[in-house]
Structures are given as C-alpha cells and as structure tokens.
Design a binder for these strands. Structure first.
Lengths: 337, 337
DNA sequence: CTGTTAGCGCGTTCAT
DNA sequence: ATGAACGCGCTAACAG
C-alpha cells in the first residue's frame, strides 16, 4: 500500500506538505504543489479513509434507517438520499430494521462506534425516549416518521392534510359509508392520516365507524383479504380509504374476482402515487408524496448539523401532499371535486 | 469519548488485556475478564471503528453497485444483501451508478481508499478491462451481471434458459410472429436472454425478425410506446417477449387503451415476477428469478474471499429460472405447456 | 496469563 | 512556505 510517506519521499518533500496539498491549504508554493501532484499519480496514491477518519473524527458516512427496502416508497426514498449524499461527499450506509426493535437498536450502535457521522431515521420502532439516548453520540434527523416530543430536525409530509383531501374527495363523490384501511396504528404517519380522515368526516356530520376500520393492511394480499371482509358485510361501505397503493390495488383485485365494479359499486383511493396506481385497471386515485424533496432536505439538514458540530436543533419541515384523481373513485364524468 | 485506555484504567489493567477480552482471546483469567466487562459498561464503552479499521486493515464494510434502487429488482436484491451482510457482521454501503460510467468509476475508488473490504457488482457500465484494474485493491464479485472474461466469482441466473422457456411457452401457444422487447443491448443479461429467445425460435424453424425487435424499453411508459408502434404495423406480431414485468404491464396498458384484447389478440410475457405481474388484469405470465438466493450467495462468496485474503478465484454459480404462467399468454383453457 | 512497546496512515500544532 | 514530531484509538508482537 502506498502511503503519504511514499509520496513525500518521491516528491522530495515532507508529509506535512503533501497533506497540505491534498486538503488544499492556502499557502503552498505552486512549484511544490506540482511536484506533489506528479508524485501522487505516479504512485497512484489515494488517501486511506480509515486513517483520515481516525484523525479527523469524521467518517463522511451517514446511515439511513428504513423498515425494509422492498417497499417501493423506501426504495425511492433511499435512491434520492444516496444521490444527494454522494453529491455532498458523503457515503450512505443502509440499515433495515425489518420492523424489529432490537435490530433498530443494533443499527443505532453505529453512532457509538463512530462509524457514521449521523443518521436519518425513516423508521422508528422503539420509543423516542429510548432512541434519544443515542443523541449524544451523533446527530439524528427524522424523515417521514415523526414524534412531537423529539427535539431534532424533522422532515415530514403533511399527513393530516393528505388524509383529509383524500377523504374529502370521497365525500364529495357522495359517499357516506367510508372504510378506513391502513397499516399499523403505531406509526405517527398513520395516526395523522386518521386525524385528517376524521376531520373530513366531521365536516360532513359523520364519525369514524369502528366496524369500517382495518389497521393491519400493508400489502396487496392484505388488500384482497380486506375486500373479502368488506364484501361479506351486510351494510358494506361504498368507498375505502387506504394507506398505500398496494393495498388499494389488492382491494381492486379482490373486487374483480368477486365481480364487484370499481368504482361503480366500490370506490377505492390509494396513497403514494406509485407506478402501480397508474396502470391498474381502473387507474387508482391516490395522494402524491414529494419523496425526492423530502429525501434531499433530510440529507442536507443532517449534513449541515454534522458540519455545525452543534447539537441538532428542533426544526420542522413539512411538504405538501397532492390529490391525484384517477378512475378508481370516479364513475362517469367528474362531479364536483 | 471513552477509549480503551479509560476502560483499562478503571479496571486496573492494561490496554492489551482489555483488547483481549473485547476480541475474546483465549487466555484471559475469568476474574479479570469480569473486571473488564464491568468497567466497559460502567463507562458505556464501545470500540471506535475507525481505529479498528486502521489497525486491522479491514473495515467490515462492503459496497454494492447497482444502477438505481427504484427498480424493484434491485430493491429486492439490495434488501436481501443487507440482511445477509448484517448477519455476517458486515455493513452494506450502497452505490448507484445511475447508468453512468464515470459515477461507477467514482464508486470503485472506495476500494483504493480502503473504505470497503470488497465490492459486489450488480451493475457494469464500464468495460471489464477497465474495472478489472481495481482488482488489486480488493475483491470483486459479480452478481446478476456477468462477463465471461472476468476471472472472479460470478453469481448469476441462467438467462439463456430464461429467455428460452418464456419463448418456448409462447411458441407452444401457437404463436409464430414474436416481438422481442427489452432494455439495452449492452448488458450481458439481455444478450443471453436474446440467445435463449433465438434458440427457441430456431427449434420452430423461425429466425429473429429485426422489425419485431425493440431494444430500449425499460419502463411502463416505454411499454405503452412500444405497443403503439406494434399496433400500427401492417403485419403485427401476435405475442411479445419483454425484459421486465413493468414493460409488459405497459404494453398491456397500451393495449387496453386501444381496445386490443390481451391475450386474445396479443399475448405478452414479462420477466421478474414482480408484484405487478400478479395484479395486472390480465395477470402477467412471467419468469421468476431467485433474487434472494443470488443475493445471499453473492454476499457469502465475497465475504469468504475477503477472509481468505487470496485473490478472488474464477468461480461460477448459476441459479435456475422458472416459468410462471398466468393470464397474459393463455386464452381459455391451457394448451400444452 | 498479563503488561510494555511500537506502529497502522494521517493531520496538525509548533517551530523555523 | 515548509518540516519535525506527536497522537487519534486500537491491536499485535515481544517479554516476562
């Protein structure tokens, strides 16, 4: 392995000078600078990153915590994060919690080992109280997930409004019996959507009906299952709000199997605006989430915090969601939207 | 920051002894071992990973090179890799090439910086000749992608057979005018599928027809576009082989718009067995790829190579592909399969 | 079984 | 503007 000493020797200079040109310090004579550059690529020298990290106490790496990557939402999120991180000279370490508290905690240890300079939490399995204990070891930023009591930067979407506009759309189409079908009570994301859902309901003099609530639907298969349950009800809902396009697609798939017309007999709205929503038949009405913006902002805020060397500050960034009306909620010509 | 010295001091022992218990060396007296453990968690000590890396010349990190994560194939691949890496005490660094040669080369530099112990190439934008120059800096393993001249481990799928069985299925359904619609000539994956395609054709006395060839279809949108082109032909194909379920979905979507029945007037076969293939209407016949197995094997082989400290050996692992017949290629009752 | 010592490769005072 | 020397935190000889 070729080290900075080798370069120094070949250039007839000292390590210090070589180090200075590597990190482009101001006061180095152009002549010697040239000699160093020549020696460097004559030897094919590249600085050793472990040595730098040890010396600088900075690894130029950040980690992102996600439940799992197969979920297209997180795939997109991480894709955008990697691009933004690379652009800023950072590497992205990927950590899947697989919805496990222990696994999440294990990944958090990276902070203590100083293996990463900071971490983005796009998943939160443990209580914030537990997670916050890692704060002294490096900056944390939340992305998408959130927790009001957390005094760190949080980059999120306006999920209340998301739930609201989707529901409002259903109500405006004349529906009064709305099912609510999402994954996981636990996540604040889901809770906020429900608040938006209920807010819209209330404006029309309605309240949440427990028999129309389904809280463990994450996948297409779950969607199919939920449809079957709905189908057997004696007083079934005429529309269903879902937490993801996959679940919506599942419900539609189930409806097809049973010969139930969507949106004629049952309207379905998704969430995420994934590709799947554009090609299902009927095309799925959904809520678009500005994933890329959120990812970029998260990276930028984290990197700023890292550079500032301060404790992360309590900051909130919220991006808007947008209703996208397609076919799964609208039969015939559009009514008032 | 609490260091190994702090622990040693508190335990009333030397650094070496502490180091020995951390790395569980055989000959340490149980009594002192206890003292060390007590001191360690009294102080909340965690070894600094940069220091370890510098000393051991091993970072316990591997990188995976993919085109981009949004593609569900790579999402699944990376998900499985992360799990397997974590299980083996390694971290996974994610590197997207975004289909750019320069970006790919940039990521390869991680090897020179000794930031990772090895790298998995699930993408190959540059010539192998170019990439192979990085071999002296750390082990490389190819996954999914391949290159015959590369004397490194390659974990791949039998794409020739995949192309063959899909095509054979179409031919057995009675089709004689087959379109071929995939992304990118460049990749060996695509080339092998085409070999399989032509092999099947040949067995039925047919040859590849250039006017039926489409080579830049990656997405749903491309699929729709391709359908339009097919639709305008005076002597259109009756079946189309595609390189991904997304493209197949696009073609089906296009067909719907123009009122062309699938599979009645046009059969379409996908590739990958992504969720989308299960919920399109009609459900898409496709070829299942054992992504998880391939990912696990890649990680294992790479880690073995890293540990052996030898140069990577020329090895080939090939996993089988499986035809999955659904609705997009079969009208009415199944004929011979 | 345990402690002392010497680097790993780099950046950074502190001199000059 | 440049060089000498020290130390980041850790592991691995080498002694004993």
């Amino acid at each position: 392995m070729v080290t900075i000493d080798d370069v120094a020797r070949l250039a007839g200079l000292s390590k210090s000078t070589v180090s200075r040109v590597i990190n482009n310090y101001p006061h180095v004579s152009p002549a010697k600078k040239q000699k160093v550059y020549q020696a460097m690529d004559a030897l094919g020298y590249v600085p050793n990153s472990s040595a730098r990290s040890l010396r600088n106490k900075k690894t130029q790496m950040i980690a992102v915590l996600v439940p799992r990557l197969m979920n297209p939402f997180f795939g997109q999120l991480v894709e955008s994060m990697e691009i933004e991180a690379t652009k800023n000279g950072f590497q992205l370490l990927i950590c899947q919690t697989m919805y496990s508290k222990e696994t999440e905690l294990g990944h958090l240890e990276l902070l203590k080992m100083k293996q990463v300079d900071g971490m983005i939490l796009a998943s939160l399995e443990n209580e914030w109280e537990t997670v916050s204990e890692y704060l002294p070891y490096g900056p944390l930023v939340m992305c998408n997930e959130f927790e009001d009591s957390a005094n760190i930067p949080i980059i999120k979407l306006d999920q209340i409004h998301g739930g609201y506009i989707a529901t409002k759309h259903l109500l405006r189409q004349g529906h009064r019996k709305l099912a609510y079908c999402t994954g996981g009570h636990k996540s604040m994301v889901g809770q906020h959507r429900k608040i938006g859902f209920e807010k819209a309901l209330k404006e029309h003099g309605l309240t949440f009906e427990n028999r129309y609530g389904f809280f463990s639907a994450y996948s297409i298969e779950h969607g199919i299952e939920v449809f079957k349950q709905i189908h057997q009800m004696k007083d079934p809902p005429t529309a269903v709000f879902t937490g993801s396009d996959e679940v919506a697609a599942g419900i539609i798939t189930g409806a097809k199997e049973y010969g139930v017309d969507v949106p004629g007999e049952l309207s379905v709205i998704g969430f995420d605006n994934q590709v799947i929503s554009k090609i299902m038949d009927p095309k799925i009405s959904t809520v678009e989430q500005p994933i890329e913006l959120m990812a970029q902002q998260s990276i930028q805020v984290l990197i700023e915090t890292i550079k500032s060397k301060d404790f992360p500050k309590r900051e909130r960034y919220e991006f808007p969601l947008e209703l996208i009306i397609r076919e799964s909620t609208v039969s015939g010509p559009l009514r008032a939207v």
